[in-house]
Amino acid sequence: MSDFEPDILTFCCNWCSYAGADLAGVSRLQYPTNNRIIRVMCSSRVEPIHILEALKEGTDGILVTGCHIGDCHYIEGNIHTDERMKEIVDALEHLGLKDRLRLEWVSAAEGKKFQETITDFVEKIRALGPNPLKEKAKEE
């Protein structure tokens, strides 16, 4: 699968990682084109169904990004995100999909970290190969 290009979906918190992605852009930090961003107000808005549906749709990797612990715009939303993501990863482990979900904290000032996170995740997922549900999703 040398020509495999993974489809990556990233959930960004409006206050930190979305602005971090903006900063990466303003700074012209180049990274792979595989990533698409969905903006939410807080990473804690992301529900298991969003992740499961994305996987069902054939998305190869999903990043959930939020503010660093202690910096949440809504005080402790990211703590809930952290707890929920651990549970979702546990559930995904049974499905053999756990490596396709990653949680990262990226602040509004960390354009470089955003670039590095996406680049690294794309490489990891590229090595992992396509989401086994992808072919079925493409048929539908």
């Binding site: 804690s44 808005r45 992301v46």
Partner: peptide, 9 residues
């Protein structure tokens, strides 16, 4: 404040 934490729960 519209964070969305509650509905995810």
């Amino acid at each position: 404040k519209g964070c969305g934490t509650c509905m995810a729960a």
